[in-house]
Design a protein around this nucleic acid. Structure first.
Lengths: 207, 207
DNA sequence: TTTAACTTGTGAATGAATTCACAAGCGCTC
DNA sequence: GAGCGCTTGTGAATTCATTCACAAGTTAAA
């Protein structure tokens, strides 16, 4: 299959969100035009994005909302559960561990880890924070799919090195650093500092 | 000035982060090659990015670390303080209000707002959560620069409409929705659901 | 059955971003 | 001060992403 651009996948995700909304509101059919309006793009873009994976619409009519939603969930790999571990039980890590948006979307947080004695053993929404020392052993046993890195900036790379050595292939990084990983590992970084600086740039350079 | 791509700004931000690191470690000079390695890009890309704004290097030698850092801070508008308000004092909002990464980078959180009686008046790291009812009045008085939206998905658009009407020009959005704003308002969205789905896609489509 | 009104799917055209490749400048050594 | 090793800055070439534009398919109505 042709390589799919990152931007395309992000848009598919946006379309799916809107489709689920529409589904909940009982809408049964939707056009690329409508989908585009809510996804912040153009109808041609919507059709092109979908065309990488097949043809899901009916000419003259548009797309069946539940059908397209199912297709997108399938394309995005959301028809199954993914097992998530969280590394770092500080402010962000703890907030994430208790964040219900995960479970809602079939991402199951199975464990949280920390190094500091005062965090280990603490209870986060029914989940006990584990000692980072057991990370590799637990990964061996439990085969999580995704690791969320919520440790301080200066420890992020070394934690990621451990995760990679232990065989993790997907990492969601909250530390404001560019992580180095081998090509078969996918990293997505949520970098608030970068977004803020983007806003700063925009505010500073308006005509 | 030529329009600068979003991706360029993000990279500048990454370069700056690494420069500040290098500065702290006492490195005085750096090549585009080195900067590229740590920024996850190529040396040509680094030089092209910088060339939009001027020529900051010395041929044969590279860039002066403190000088380039200063230039980048200037380009990104980080030579001044930005005043930030946070809308929504739930889990994410509260975590953000107490997050020190903001202050470190000269983004000063001046207020947090919520609608619910049990949050209003609560103390977050020395800051009292205000009643959302006073939002417009306070914006008039205090002229914040950036609004962080950390309210539930279904309330995000209406909150943003209020912010826009009150004159805010920069919004950092944590709700997993595509917000509609007029063209003179800049929105950056941090969408964890989207990132997770990107990872799910990557895991599902590896060769 | 024909026509009209829509909307998809997709090559072709355009536009944007990245990479190439190299002349020109700098510092060091002899 | 000539020569060498490096590294920048930048047009040109290339690759990648988006938009255009239209044939083809669908529904509904006459």
């Amino acid at each position: 299959m042709k390589r799919i651009a990152d931007s395309t996948v992000r848009r598919l995700s946006a379309y799916l969100r809107f489709l689920e909304d529409s589904e909940a509101r009982g809408v049964t059919t939707i056009s690329s035009e409508e989908l585009a309006r809510r996804g912040g793009t153009t109808s041609a873009q919507v059709r092109k994005d979908l065309s990488f994976f097949g043809s899901f619409g009916k000419r003259g009519l548009g797309y069946s909302v539940p059908e397209l939603a199912t297709q997108l969930r399938d394309i995005l790999g959301l028809e199954r559960d993914w097992r998530v571990i969280i590394i770092g039980a500080g402010k962000i890590g703890a907030a994430l561990a208790q964040y219900h948006g995960f479970q809602q979307r079939r991402f199951s947080v199975i464990a949280a880890y920390d190094v500091s004695a005062d965090k280990i053993g603490r209870n986060l929404d029914g989940m006990v924070v584990r000692d980072m020392a057991h990370l590799e052993r637990d990964i061996q046993r439990e085969h999580p799919d995704i690791a969320v890195v919520a440790v301080p900036e200066d420890r992020a790379q070394s934690v990621v090195d451990r995760l990679v050595r232990a065989g993790m292939k997907a990492i969601l990084n909250f530390a404001p650093v560019q992580l180095q990983v081998p090509p078969d590992v996918t990293v997505k970084t949520v970098n608030m500092a970068m977004e803020l600086e983007g806003l700063s740039f925009a505010l500073s350079n308006r005509d």
